[in-house]
């Protein structure tokens, strides 16, 4: 069964640290526990989303700049 990395917060999801920077992670990349996979913007702060488990990214389930809810799957791990 696929594993998911979930958003800890409601807000706006960003896949990169600044508008002209590359994505933190792409499909096919491996993630270790604690790796930053994106940011959630809420209440004038940008909060890093860290992987709670390790794996290889098979899909992004939320796009860059997409509104997300707390508990929403952001990334699928193979």
């Amino acid at each position: 069964m696929a594993k998911h990395l979930l958003s800890p917060l409601p807000g706006t999801f960003y896949r990169k640290p600044s508008p002209d920077a590359p994505f933190y992670k792409d499909v096919g990349d491996t993630v270790a526990q604690g790796d930053v996979i994106g940011l959630i913007e809420v209440m004038k702060s940008f909060n890093e989303v860290r992987a709670e488990q390790a794996g290889t990214i098979t899909a992004f389930l939320a796009d860059d700049e997409e509104p997300v809810m707390a508990g929403q799957p952001l990334v699928e791990l193979g």
């Binding site: 979930l6 800890p8 917060l9 409601p10 809810m69 707390a70 508990g71």
Partner: peptide, 8 residues
């Protein structure tokens, strides 16, 4: 706490 389900 578990994830927020509703409200803020």
């Amino acid at each position: 706490f578990a994830f927020l389900k509703k409200g803020a």
